[in-house]
Amino acid sequence: MSAIASARLMPALLLLGVALGTGVSTRSHAEYADVVLNRNAEKEGMRPVVFPHWFHRIRFRCKVCHAELGFKMRAGSNLVTMGDIIDGKFCGACHNGEIAWAPENCDLCHSGKPGLPPGIFGGHETNGPGIW
């Protein structure tokens, strides 16, 4: 192939590259496995809670919350109340001012967008007919 022909080919290849590149770097919105808790929050005048799995699994293995603390592995199956948290149950096992911030820092957990339904977000797999 001559140099001239390859020079003609360059813009086409660049366009192809840009198209592929943007496809690869498409970002999802919520981080994979973010959980929104909003069965009570907005009814009681607070923003929904956003629980980021990624943040917690850097620091704790799944078994801490899902075996030791008793969180069931299904979004929506744990009715978490502030009363329980203040009593040291569920989130309150760590969010007690010793391991993690204390429950009086309301807005750090109640940080969700108003109107969000409870559920698990962040993966296209979770938008289908499944029951996560």
């Binding site: 970002r27 919105h29 973010d34 923003r47 967008k113």
Partner: peptide, 15 residues
């Protein structure tokens, strides 16, 4: 493979 959305733009946090 890509980038991570900023919390303010992730659609679940209130910006």
């Amino acid at each position: 493979a890509g980038e991570w959305a900023k919390l303010a733009e992730d659609g679940v946090h209130d910006p």
